[in-house]
Amino acid sequence: MAVKKKLAVFKFASCDGCQLSILDLEDELLTLAQEITIANFAEASRAVLDGPYDLTLIEGSITTPHDFARIRELRDMSKFLVTIGACATAGGIQALRNFADVSEYTRLVYARPDYVETLHKSTPIAEHVPVDFELRGCPVNKHQLLEVISAFIADRKPNISSDSVCVECKRRGTVCIMVAKGTPCLGPLTHSGCNALCPTYDRGCFGCYGPQDNSSPAALTQYWQELGTDPQVMFRLLRNFNPATEPFRSESEKWAPKTPEQ
């Protein structure tokens, strides 16, 4: 039998939800652990095997000088490096700081702001090191995560759709809530992966998976306007869990309130 490949999972600024998705693979976890060596995964194990690692999963964004250095070390010791989730792939919700004055944020939250060491921006991993694959979502879809790991074990490319939520929704046969109910929905701009979850719960998509490539935001915001959507609502929809990613970033600027604020 071939030598098992080594998997590592590391966390940066994040909520733990994406790496939890590995432990949420209740039916597959034990099989997975037989197929790959879990070499470094602090949330799940005390056991630590030194690098280099064959596959490194990164959760979270870069927000501190220390993490800025740490990601380079991890890249150096990883054959393949994959980002999991909106924080690692797009900077996450904490990238809202990129539009604000971070020193004011620090003063608001902490009594001793001088203790806090933080960067002015929350940035995705790919801004710092080459990334071999980016899995999107806030949180990631655990089945897609399993597909990424399985593809890696089998030396093949991950089979992850790059459609929009809108296409997923049509495929699922859900009645369009934007057309039928006038609910503003970010589905036409948003990357697939959630299986068009929100419209099946009578709710407009709010962009957890970030922008889909080749989307045309201006056409959608024009349609929202025709529905009579409050510009403030449009602004907030474009600026939540993936606010720093194009084209969400630039389109949100168009609808930003006159007095600068979040």
Partner: peptide, 13 residues
Amino acid sequence: PPRFFEAFLRGRS
């Protein structure tokens, strides 16, 4: 690392 939720919740709906 700090993520500043209490700060960026200000101004949201």
